[in-house]
Simulated scan of single mutants.
Amino acid sequence: MIEFSNYDIIRNLIFAAQWTVLLSLVAFIGGTLVALVLTALRLTRNSILQKLVAVYIELFQGTPLLMQMFLCFFGVSLLGYEISAWSAAILALTLFTSAFLVEIWRGCIDTLPKGQWEASRCLGMSFLQILRYIILPQALRVAIAPTVGFSVQVVKGTALASVIGFVELTKAGTMLNNATFEPFKVFAMVAVIYFLLCYPLSLSSKILEKKFNVSR
């Protein structure tokens, strides 16, 4: 058994936590960009595009993120393309994140009065102009709190990247446990670090909700 001091364990976990944060940021930004496009497509009057977006959402919301990780990592390799664990984790988390953000934002947009769409069209505004100047500025106030709140799920979802070999916080904890045979101490530290990452996001979501008076 390799001797590890508490300092050694914490130092290694903090280093791995940096990869967890980076993976979360990249996946959340990627998911946001994809979700913006999908939300715009879903708001169009084209029924085919609406159905395609609906299928996309049902697919990635209705299947486990773990399975999506496996498919992105092993499935792409079977097609003849080599993909790293880092790239597969980003791809899976981006698809997963975008599917949920589309539904969150659609619900926020649906809270706005329907008459604003008709009034804007009567003024001769195009679809993109209506989104940019009328709908999105109002929907943003409603959407920002649940969007920040969902980022907690993205951070916790990065733990599943350990199953495809990506060394983030959970994988580092498993490796340290195998080396020290002290599961309670190691995973207690892992849990504390996850809490320190997620709690500020949850708290920020509650503060933003109160600030923008979403309930009103």
Rank of each mutant, 00 (worst) to 15 (best):
M1Q: 06
D8H: 13
L13G: 08
I14R: 00
F15L: 09
T32W: 10
V34N: 07
A35T: 04
L36I: 05
T39C: 08
K51H: 10
L52T: 01
V55T: 08
I57V: 15
T63I: 10
P64F: 04
M67E: 03
Q68Y: 03
C72V: 13
F74W: 12
S77H: 06
L79S: 08
G80L: 01
Y81I: 11
Y81L: 11
I83G: 06
I83P: 00
A85F: 05
A89D: 09
L93T: 10
T94A: 15
L95M: 14
L101Y: 09
I104W: 05
W105D: 04
C108L: 03
L112Q: 07
G115Q: 02
Q116G: 03
W117C: 04
R121E: 14
L123N: 05
L123F: 09
R132I: 01
Y133L: 02
I134N: 03
A143P: 02
I144N: 05
V154M: 13
V155Q: 10
A159C: 04
A161N: 12
G165I: 14
L169C: 08
N178S: 15
N178R: 02
P183N: 09
F184D: 13
V186M: 08
A188C: 08
L196P: 01
L197I: 09
Y199D: 07
Y199N: 08
L201V: 11
S202P: 00
S205I: 01
R216F: 00
